[in-house]
């Protein structure tokens, strides 16, 4: 499979701030790739490097097989970009902006444009400032989805959309994927990512910390286990991969309630140890996507706390 985007060891500093610190990113052609990370992790900086708006200090980036800085115009002919914060010209109507962007890319599919305007319930005759945030995003989204391009780069494109429009957006992304287009989707809306993305990359402090399919990532994270045991648990705390272990005696003083988190690939050893003490009841919860992300997001907070 060819790569739509390849980024390796990307560095970018603004003064003393290291916005990107050796970031890697691989997006296969034809996939929907989730791009996640806490605020300030470097998502938008990465996207601006991919668009040739910023020049990387070091490291390589290729978009559709070309250097986005040197070959910006050729690359952009096949790209549509939707920024998170869409600003429009006060005296241009939404329809004019859509057509302008279409013409400045590879061209616009007039039928798809009409269909999208209807589906997104957008009034194309209104002018710049009179659109709400969500409607400004719709203008950029209609322009992007109706453009004849190979790669869509969407930077938190749904932050102003209502749930119904969010649904329309998701259908559109699926249609684009079905047509063989590649989509890089930066988003904080986890349900959206879970629904749409084939693979995700999580970045933190300018570095990629996880990359892979959601199933892969789940495997890497922790399952929470709650069990009631007939006898005292034995040696649980010494098992590798066990975290946040809490043991309580139950009312009669004989049974014990155990709560723990375990790295999912170490689950087997924990279950064996538990069964030695006589399991009365057991619940095991696979990690939710939220936990997956929170774990990475919170590392920032924890590190910040210990640094202090």
């Amino acid at each position: 499979m060819t790569k739509a985007i390849t980024v390796s060891g990307l560095h970018k500093s603004f003064g003393t701030t290291h916005a990107l610190d050796g970031l890697d990113l691989d997006v296969e052609a034809g996939e929907v790739h989730g791009f996640l990370g806490p605020n300030g992790a470097g998502k938008s900086t990465t996207i601006r490097v991919l668009l040739g708006l910023l020049r990387a200090d070091s490291g390589g980036a290729q978009v559709l097989g070309r250097d986005p800085w040197a070959d910006a115009v050729e690359v952009h002919r096949r790209i549509a970009y939707v920024p998170g914060d869409v600003t429009l010209w006060r005296n241009l109507s939404g329809g004019e902006v859509i057509d302008l962007y279409g013409r400045l890319r590879g061209g616009l599919d007039a039928r798809r444009r009409a269909e999208l305007i209807e589906r997104f319930e957008l009034d194309p005759t209104k002018k710049g400032r009179t659109y709400s945030k969500g409607n400004r995003q719709k203008v950029a989204l209609v322009a992007a989805f109706a453009s004849d391009v190979d790669l869509l780069i969407l930077d938190e494109p749904t932050s102003g959309l209502d749930p119904l429009m969010e649904e329309v957006f998701q259908r559109c992304v699926e249609e684009e994927r079905d047509r063989g287009r590649t989509i890089l989707l930066s988003s904080h809306i986890l349900s959206e990512v879970e629904e749409l993305c084939d693979r995700v990359s999580i970045i933190r402090k300018g570095r990629t910390v996880e990359s892979g399919s959601l199933a892969d990532l789940r495997h890497l994270t922790r399952t929470s286990v709650t069990a009631e045991l007939a006898g005292p648990p034995n040696g649980l705390s010494h098992l590798p991969g066990v975290h946040d272990l809490a043991i309580q005696s139950t009312e009669r003083g004989q049974g014990h309630r155990v709560r723990l988190q375990v790295d999912t690939d170490k689950l087997d050893a924990v279950l064996r140890s538990l069964s030695e003490s006589g399991v009365r009841s057991l619940t095991s919860t696979p990690p939710t996507l939220e936990e997956l992300f929170l774990r990475h997001y919170q590392d920032d907070v924890r590190e910040g706390a210990t640094a202090r």
């Binding site: 668009l51 708006l53 115009v73 050729e74 952009h76 970009y81 920024p83 962007y101 400045l104 890319r105």
Partner: peptide, 8 residues
């Protein structure tokens, strides 16, 4: 920014 993200 979005203008320059096009083929311009």
């Amino acid at each position: 920014e979005p203008v320059l993200a096009n083929a311009v």
